[in-house]
Design a protein around this nucleic acid. Structure first.
Lengths: 237, 237
DNA sequence: GCAAATTTGTACGTATGTATC
DNA sequence: CGATACATACGTACAAATTTG
């Protein structure tokens, strides 16, 4: 009866459409104007309904653009053999990588310490943006001691895959040794590359991979957009 | 000035009044009409601000009656406390904490899902700030199903230790089942409690602990100040 | 118990700002 | 640049619940 208000009815109907999968994540809703006409109410009444669904985390809106079905944060398992593509494929997300830079540079102090080599030794630098369904998830800098790697610059440039580079260098069985995690705010450059706002919270990981012989083979600094991913730490006891 | 809207400014001011304890719990606010005049805005603008604070759980309103302060003023983390050292490798295990709140409350939807119980079932809520050298490191909310716990409210209040509460309830051998990690920006209340800036990057962890029988016994949400901690995830296998 | 005054809730209307396309 | 679309903010009116006389 009068227990159900128009904004509530509309919110219920929209919620139904979303949770039943009639709209896919990322789908753009009709404009508030159109929705208002469709439901025969004022635009503000529709806005009230949308407000509710935004608070429930089902929708988000971008001024000047539209209202969209929220894309849930992508799970990102942290295990001993983490592979970007495998992880995303398991989550049903199309993975892509945009290679920013592949170079051979001298190791700075931190990189040298992490890779257990001397500062100034040559390392291969691989910089890329991790994409999921065209949305940037992460910004990644990988360092590999040049001495222990083959000539993988071309592979990295063309395939953008650390795994492929490792296999080509005879380190197909590399695995994760340790991961350190903290959080920071995005600076202007990172915001630009990750398509987020300056100041947005980033998940920062420092990870080391080792060969099956236990030699340090890769040091990786990653910056994830906090709102788009969660790391999943799996405990095996 | 386009970054601060009037409803935002008003919400901030009202929140400040509540959090700092200028209103007692249950205190009735001035009417929307009066508040509107006081801030020199339309009644709807004040309503928008009140809406925000209701969503944060600070206010509630009763039609025909008024708007009331919902929760007691949050204790302000000041004053001398015993120093303690915290092993951050074991995330969430705060050895000694400043207890903010211990209560028995109804489980909301997320907590119920994580603990595998029904929404509305009673859970023990434990809220504390982890400090190191007087500096807040983390904000922690733990939820435990009341049915499976003994009368541990006193223990939690006095000792501030989850471990002690578990042992008293016969769950001494509980262990970590899963940890999910993401990042977000501090809101005003969190910034206040963690003594950081609003918008600062926070490391957010959701962890589940199970009994040795595999039953969910604790769900813990932690917020770490990104600039003050480094979680260390150790991989074995 | 009832009616009036008070106070919040819903709904529509209009105008303007601002980000996106 | 203009057109589109969401965001803010003012206004009005009436409904519904509570409090008060």
């Amino acid at each position: 009866m009068s227990r159900s208000f128009r904004w509530q009815v509309i919110a219920d109907e929209l919620r139904e459409d979303i949770v039943k999968g009639r709209y896919l994540p990322g789908h753009k809703l009709d404009t508030e104007e159109v929705l208002a006409r469709r439901f025969g109410v004022n635009r503000h009444t529709v806005r009230r309904s949308i407000e509710v669904l935004k608070n429930e985390g089902l929708l988000h809106s971008r001024r000047g653009s539209g209202v969209y079905v929220h894309r849930p944060a992508t799970p990102y398992p942290l295990g001993s053999r983490t592979r970007f593509r495998e992880n995303l494929a398991r989550a049903g997300v199309a993975a892509g990588a945009q290679v920013l830079r592949v170079d051979v540079v001298a190791a700075d102090e931190e990189v040298a310490r992490m890779l257990q080599i001397r500062p100034g030794e040559m390392v291969i630098l691989f910089e890329a943006i991790g994409l999921a369904d065209q949305t940037p998830l992460s910004l990644r800098e990988s360092y590999m001691p040049a001495q222990k790697m083959g000539d993988v610059v071309g592979i990295l440039r063309e395939q953008g895959s650390i795994t492929a580079a490792m296999e080509a260098s005879g380190h197909g069985n590399y695995k994760r040794a340790s991961t350190k995690i903290t959080a920071g705010n995005a600076n202007l450059l990172q915001a630009d590359q990750l398509q987020c706002m300056k100041g947005d919270a980033l998940l920062i990981t420092h990870a080391c991979n080792v060969t099956e012989d236990g030699e340090m083979i890769e040091f990786c600094r990653s910056h994830f957009v906090g709102s788009r991913v969660f790391l999943d730490v799996h405990q095996e006891a």
